[in-house]
């Protein structure tokens, strides 16, 4: 492998992150929003949220990315490969994290919520000051686990032509007639990305919760 080959793999890593990070950043809050809609049992919206979650959870990523890539232009919106991949994985992350958030919400102690109400906190304050900090901490391991799974489905984006890590490794292997070395490098890159995520989780878990501005 030559310098250019390493560069190709690193560019692939960049693409992987460019898909995964926005998908996490948008998917997790959207999942929380869906979870809240279901938790509050808002009539029609709650049912729609439940159906969406089941749908996205049931669809393989490869299928979903193709669907988004070919279906969205049908309604008149031009969509490049990268946004299509980001949207797809955002939807998937939304669906999976929704279930994580919902679990944490349902396990939230009723008396703590009552206390927040009794102290005169409005719905927004109850959520922001009392519920969110606790469910975020409780959900963190499951959320990070979901993120590592997300990184591992990014190769699905190759079907619409994006060259992420795995696709880059295939290409380098084909050009150099040595498939093994690029895949070993790819392995290392995946390990570094996922190791960073898990390290971040450890850091957040051990930090005292002083996040609240009081």
């Amino acid at each position: 492998m030559q310098e250019g080959d390493y560069l190709a793999l690193l560019t692939g890593a960049w693409t992987t992150l460019a898909i995964a990070l926005p998908a996490i950043a948008m998917g997790a809050p959207l999942g929380l929003a869906l979870a809240l809609i279901r938790w509050r049992k808002i009539p029609v919206l709650g049912t729609i949220a439940a159906i969406l979650v089941s749908l996205f959870r049931a669809t393989p990523s490869v299928t979903l990315v193709l669907l988004v890539y070919y279906a969205v232009p049908q309604i008149g919106i031009q969509l490049a490969e990268l946004p299509a991949a980001i949207i797809t994985l955002t939807l998937g992350t939304m669906a999976y994290t929704c279930e994580i958030w919902r679990g944490a919400l349902m396990a939230f102690p009723r008396d703590q919520y009552d206390a927040a109400m009794a102290m005169g906190m409005t719905r927004g304050l109850r959520f922001r000051l009392i519920v969110l900090p606790q469910i975020a901490r409780a959900s963190l391991p499951a959320l990070v686990n979901e993120m590592t799974l997300l990184i591992k489905v990014t190769p699905a984006a190759a079907v619409i032509g994006l060259v992420e890590i795995t696709r880059a490794a295939v290409r380098v292997g084909a050009e150099t007639y040595q498939p093994l070395p690029p895949f070993l490098v790819a392995l290392v890159i995946y390990a570094v990305i996922i190791g960073t995520l898990v390290g971040l989780q450890r850091y957040l878990e051990h930090r005292q919760t002083r996040a609240l501005a009081i």
Partner: peptide, 26 residues
Amino acid sequence: GMVFQSFALWPHLSVLQNVMVAPIHV
């Protein structure tokens, strides 16, 4: 004011924060 059988303190906040959070934000 309400006081609960199960105390219902907020475990992610220190004692002082438990007492301060509502007067500040509410």
